[in-house]
Write a protein that binds this DNA or RNA. Structure first.
Ligand SMILES: [Zn+2]
Ligand SMILES: [Zn+2]
Ligand SMILES: [Zn+2]
Ligand SMILES: [Zn+2]
Ligand SMILES: [Zn+2]
Ligand SMILES: [Zn+2]
Length: 586
DNA sequence: GAGTTTGAAACT
DNA sequence: CAGTTTCAAACTC
């Protein structure tokens, strides 16, 4: 199916999303240079009802694989420049009011915790244009491609009913929504099949067409973030997994668990074929503490969350931000990636007779399990589907992904201990004997110590992969999730620095796990996983440099920031105060 | 769905 | 840093 191209110049649109998505629903992040020069070729708003009709009638029955392949070839672009960083709706362009330059933003207003100061120089660099004509053409193709999945629609912002908001943002907003989802089910990068799954469409009524201001709206609550696309690779992640055209109507994808009446209007429900979208269930934390898995993963809560008194919403972006900062004050690495992949360059002979290089991803902080034996999801290591490491303080570890005692880290520790002992021994030679000093005999049998391979940290997986629905062992595109600014930072800063990603086999488990409780497991069973592995030094340097990004310029507030209605912000209020204020509200 | 168990996060 | 409390998920029935 080839949807008509809806693209034209729309000078009255100040801001319009230029996201590029293929039929897999994945966002393609064009190689930098392309974006700016071509960005003025914008999308024409389609007739809303027509769009919706299209959308409902034929939800992206596109020959996606072929299309994507053709596109990629013709575009002559290397996928994976910015894999799985953001959703289509998180990429926006706008004309800077002052410089008249086109600005590309990745998720500034859509990423929940993201303010402009968090915009990474890396991603911006990637998106800044060079004027290269061939890339322009490529991007043209991208636009063409994505335009089939994109349309505008006008909707009155509910929040504009707030006086405060309307003072700042009169008139309508033009919203881009990419809120249907696609499955991608193939281990080949672009050999995917797609299917749309739209649960719920919420009608909104147009109003006030007078304003020329167009704001790409936040994507609060719009997508089944935790949809479990059976990505088999992260390689496909140049594309957003969840884009669909949806004009004139606001399409919300809501969980089967979501309350059907949250004051929203005119709901019309469609059902997904499958999927478990439920997420957090917080009651006391307001989803502003690490207790909340959404918050901890750097995601906004979604409608499928069953949380109460949730502040982890775009409406409360400032509180989210404050809470983040407060937590990072306590632990600067609180939102840092927690799963670190260390490439084990010692291939082992797998059951199938092939040589494989087992992953040695480990939890950075390690667990402290006492009763679960690291055999249940109580254990963070097990939950992340990684083995326990020397960093774990677990007791009676029986982690089936790798016991602490068996980990290369443990072996490394043992070797270190051994070497320390040797040093002690050599020191002793000229010194006084110590009854507690080990003897060479006490150094014992080292036969159980397997030789250490060169263990180079090669992949730092974002904490987002810890999220139950996005496990590291089932690598999938993180796009579509509303990443927090910090999350985006950790992630895309690493990605932005990548020069030549290499690949390793991604299934880190040397063991066979039949985790039927995880739908993603079912969907991806039997497919080889591949993960991107990034050069360690760059990641390291990026991470070290991460603390210096706070000084990045901040632009005008974006829609989601301006519509916060609870409670009014005091300009000089610090984080602690704000959090206390929240406490007081209770 | 209710109740229990668990270990991280938060707090002191 | 350690001990305690709080919290929400995982688990059990
Ligand atoms: Zn929550
Ligand atoms: Zn949530
Ligand atoms: Zn919440
Ligand atoms: Zn454990
Ligand atoms: Zn562990
Ligand atoms: Zn363990």
């Amino acid at each position: 199916m080839e949807m008509p191209l809806r693209r034209s110049l729309l000078p009255h649109y100040e801001e319009i999303a230029a996201s590029t998505s293929n039929a897999h629903g994945q966002l393609y992040s064009p190689s930098s240079s392309a974006l700016i020069p071509c960005i003025q070729k914008q999308f024409q708003s389609c007739n809303p009802s027509e769009c919706v009709d299209d959308f409902l009638a034929d939800p992206l029955e596109v020959d996606s694989a072929q299309h994507a392949e053709t596109f990629l070839q013709s575009a002559n672009v290397v996928p994976l420049l910015l894999p799985s960083c953001f959703t289509a709706s998180q990429v926006t362009t706008k004309n800077d009011d002052y410089t008249n330059d086109w600005v590309v933003e990745v998720g500034a207003q859509t990423l929940p915790h993201l303010s402009k100061k968090h915009l990474l120089s890396g991603s911006l660099i990637l998106l800044e244009g060079s004027g290269d004509q061939s890339i322009d053409e490529s991007f043209d193709k991208i636009l063409k491609f994505s335009s089939e999945n994109i349309c505008n629609y006008v909707e009155p912002d509910e929040l504009l009913e707030h006086q405060e908001a309307s003072q700042h943002q009169r008139g309508i907003r033009r919203h881009l929504r990419f809120e249907a989802t696609l499955d991608c089910k193939d281990n080949a990068a672009f050999n995917c099949h797609t299917s749309s799954r739209v649960r719920e469409v919420v009608d909104h009524v147009d109003s006030d067409h007078q304003s020329s201001e167009a704001v790409v709206v936040d994507n609060e609550g719009h997508l089944p973030d935790n949809i479990e696309p059976p990505w088999d690779t992260q390689q496909v992640s140049c594309f957003d997994q969840q884009t669909l055209p949806c004009g004139g109507q606001r399409v919300e994808v809501l969980s089967q668990y979501a309350e059907s009446s949250k004051g929203k209007r005119n709901r019309e429900t469609y059902t997904y074929e499958s999927g478990d979208f439920k997420r957090c269930n917080c009651q006391m934390s307001r989803c502003l503490k690490l207790y909340c898995e959404c918050f901890a993963a750097g995601l906004y809560c979604v409608d499928s969350c069953a949380c109460e008194n949730c502040y982890n919403r775009t409406d409360y972006e400032d509180w989210v931000e404050d809470s983040r900062e407060q937590i990072e004050l306590r632990n600067p690495l609180a939102f840092a990636p927690t799963i670190v992949e260390q490439a084990n360059d010692s291939p082992i002979l797998a059951d199938d007779g092939n040589w494989t290089t087992p992953s040695s991803a480990r939890h950075k902080r390690g667990c402290k399990c006492k009763r679960s034996k690291c055999l249940k999801k109580y254990c963070e290591c097990y939950r992340a589907k990684v083995g326990c490491s020397g960093g774990c303080r677990c007791e009676g570890c029986d982690n089936s992904f790798g016991k602490k005692s068996e980990s290369i880290f443990q072996r490394e520790e043992e070797w270190k201990n051994l070497l320390n002992m040797e040093e002690l021994m050599s020191d002793q030679k000229g010194g006084t004997a110590n009854q507690f000093s080990p003897t060479w005999e006490e150094l014992g049998n080292t036969s159980h110590l397997t030789p250490l391979s060169h263990q180079v940290p090669s992949l730092i997986l974002s904490k987002i992969w810890d999220f139950p629905y996005i496990s590291q062992a089932q690598p999938q595109d993180g796009s579509g999730l509303q990443l927090s600014p910090g999350q985006l930072h950790w992630y895309s800063s690493a990605l932005a620095s990548v020069n030549a990603p290499c690949e390793i086999m991604g299934d880190g488990s040397p063991h066979i796990h039949n985790d039927n409780s995880n739908p993603a497991n079912k969907l991806q069973s039997g497919s080889p996983n591949q993960e991107r592995v990034f050069p360690p030094q760059q990641i390291q340097s990026d991470r070290l440099g991460s603390s210096s990004t706070a000084g990045l310029q901040s632009g005008r507030k974006l829609s989601s920031q301006a519509v916060s209605s609870f409670p009014p912000l005091s300009p000089h209020r610090n984080s602690k105060d704000r959090m206390n204020q929240i406490e007081d509200e209770q």
